[in-house]
Simulated scan of single mutants.
Amino acid sequence: MQAFDGPEALAAALGQELGVGGWITVDQAMIDRFAEATGDRQWIHVDPERAARESPYGTTVAHGYLTLSLVPQFIAELRRLDGLRLSLNYGLDRVRFPAPVLAGARLRGRVRLAAATPVPPRGLRVTYGVTVEIEGQERPACLADAVVLHHW
């Protein structure tokens, strides 16, 4: 984990990869909890028997937004912001889901500091380029540019 003690230190890492995190298993229980929380209960996500019969994947798949919801966790795992007062999600500039996440798959985040814009007096608007990798797969599950406003 990299530690940064202020906006200047974080901005100095512009263009660098912050690292690659540990694996997270996306099991059926996680998919079911996400479906319940969001109301998105399509059979492709929550009905393993039907998915085994009718899905081209032979099993259920995680919601794309479930994968996307893991992005802040992947970022936080790889960097520490010492002295930070608060962070706010600012938005997303780009999101793609190149490959499905099958139930039971393991994911991890590869994070780089793609952009950093000062926000006076002691803030920094940061774009983290996140690639969500699937263990054993060539294509990633998700590519996202997550924008976060940090205030020291």
Rank of each mutant, 00 (worst) to 15 (best):
M1L: 11
Q2L: 15
A3I: 14
A3K: 08
G6E: 09
E8F: 03
E8K: 10
A11M: 03
A11F: 01
A11P: 00
A13Y: 04
A13I: 11
G15W: 05
G15M: 11
Q16L: 12
G21T: 04
G22T: 09
W23H: 13
W23R: 13
W23E: 15
I24E: 09
I24M: 06
V26K: 01
D27H: 11
D27P: 08
Q28D: 09
M30E: 12
M30S: 06
I31Q: 00
I31G: 00
D32N: 10
A35F: 11
A35P: 06
A35Y: 10
A35E: 13
E36Q: 14
A37Y: 03
A37R: 05
T38C: 05
T38G: 04
R41N: 10
W43R: 09
I44W: 05
H45C: 03
H45P: 00
V46I: 15
P48N: 06
E49C: 07
E49T: 14
E49P: 03
A51S: 13
S55E: 12
S55R: 07
P56L: 10
G58L: 11
G58T: 11
V61C: 06
V61M: 06
V61P: 00
A62G: 05
H63L: 10
H63N: 11
H63K: 08
T67M: 12
T67L: 13
L68S: 08
I75R: 02
I75G: 02
A76I: 14
L78S: 04
G83K: 12
G83E: 13
G83M: 13
R85L: 15
R85Q: 15
L88M: 07
L88Y: 01
N89Q: 12
N89F: 08
Y90R: 05
G91I: 09
G91W: 03
D93M: 06
D93W: 02
R96S: 13
F97L: 15
F97W: 12
P98Y: 09
P98H: 08
P98G: 09
A99R: 06
P100L: 08
V101K: 01
V101A: 07
A103M: 10
G104N: 03
A105S: 15
A105H: 12
R108N: 15
R108C: 15
R110P: 08
R110N: 13
V111Y: 00
A114V: 12
A114W: 04
A115S: 13
P118Y: 06
P120C: 04
P120H: 05
P120Q: 10
P120L: 11
P120K: 11
P120M: 07
P121V: 13
P121Y: 01
R122W: 04
R122E: 14
G123H: 08
R125P: 00
V126N: 00
V126G: 00
T127Y: 05
T127D: 14
G129W: 07
G129P: 03
V130P: 00
T131L: 08
V132G: 02
E133H: 10
E138A: 11
P140K: 02
A144I: 14
A144R: 02
A144P: 02
D145K: 07
A146W: 07
V147W: 03
H151S: 06
H151Y: 03
H151Q: 06
W152C: 06
